[in-house]
């Protein structure tokens, strides 16, 4: 498969604050690539660089095999970008927004007449087409923004946290829409702070503090991770948690709702679990091994980075 985005050793600084530190990334033709990380990980900066909205300070970036720093105008006509914040005209109607953006991308009238019904059908916005964009609900706004980014049939779609703050039902719908866009042949780079959305991507890049933690298919990321996760539940969770945190053999001890997730080195896991069971018998802990989620893996990689460079922690 051909790479539609190639990022090599990108560094980016805002003043003396480093936003991206030697990031490299490949997005293949036709895939949904997830850029996963919390706020201020550098996702937006990276996406803005890809769209040519930020100057490249060092490193190389090419999209469609074209150098972003030189050919950004050409790239833009083949690219759809949906920024994090809703950035359409709130005082124009749904249809006026779509027509306006179609015009900006020089979509011909014929093409437009064909494209608009398609977009309406897929976003289910037709019944709201004369409503002002500002009067739409959050989920519908995102669908409109997505439709505007698709009006010129881009080859690549870049979406910056499109599901942030959107309700679970709309989120699910949104991902279904992305899947159908992908079937139409468009490659997608999507960023999200939600780890569960990683499983919906063909490939993901985990990013933290301007650094890539891992980049592969979700299955391979899990397979290559040489650690195991144990779920701990106990009636005396409050007393147990501070005790467990003190044990240095436990790589990490994170609270997920009512349970704790312990991350252990795969080869030492059995013996540590045995020790724990006897040592904390009084708290009646229930220990069972579970499939690691993307969140467990992300946190474990993140802590590894933090330990290496304590200055970045916190």
């Amino acid at each position: 498969m051909q790479d539609i985005i190639q990022v090599r050793d990108i560094m980016h600084q805002y003043g003396d604050k480093t936003a991206l530190e030697k990031i490299s990334l490949q997005v293949s033709q036709g895939e949904i690539h997830g850029l996963i990380g919390p706020d201020s990980a550098g996702k937006t900066t990276l996406m803005r660089i890809l769209c040519g909205l930020l100057n490249i300070q060092s490193g190389t970036v090419s999209v469609f095999d074209l150098d972003v720093s030189k050919k950004f105008k050409e790239i833009r006509s083949r690219l759809g970008y949906m920024p994090q914040r809703f950035s359409l005209y709130q005082d124009l109607s749904v249809e006026e927004n779509l027509l306006f953006f179609a015009r900006l991308f020089s979509v011909t009238v014929q093409e437009r007449n064909q494209r608009l019904p398609e977009l309406y059908a897929f976003s289910r916005l037709e019944q709201f087409k004369s409503r002002r964009a500002g009067a739409l609900s959050g989920g519908m706004k995102q669908k409109l923004a997505l439709s505007c980014a698709l009006v010129h049939r881009p080859e690549l779609l870049i979406l910056d946290e499109p599901t942030y703050g959107v309700d679970p039902v709309s989120r699910q719908e949104f991902w279904q829409m992305l899947k159908s866009i992908q079937k139409g042949g468009t490659s997608i780079l999507v960023s999200t702070p939600y780890m569960d959305e990683a499983e919906l991507c063909d490939r993901v890049t985990l990013i933290y503090n301007g650094k890539v933690l891992a980049s592969d298919t979700p299955t391979k990321i899990k397979a290559n991770w040489n650690k195991v996760v144990f779920r701990v539940t106990s009636p005396e969770m409050k007393e147990l948690e501070p005790e467990l945190v003190k044990i240095i053999e436990i790589e990490s001890c994170q609270r997920f709702g009512n349970e704790l997730h312990l991350v252990l080195q795969a080869d030492e896991a059995a013996s540590i679990i045995n020790q724990l069971e006897t040592r904390f018998d009084e708290y009646m802990p229930m220990l069972e091994q579970i499939q690691p989620g993307m969140e467990d893996i992300y946190l474990s990689y993140m802590q590894a980075v933090q330990h290496k460079e304590p200055s970045h922690a916190g």
Partner: peptide, 13 residues
């Protein structure tokens, strides 16, 4: 302010 300028900048306008 409302971010449309940036949206316009990623079009071929």
């Amino acid at each position: 302010e409302i971010g449309t300028l940036e949206q316009l900048m990623v079009t071929p306008v």
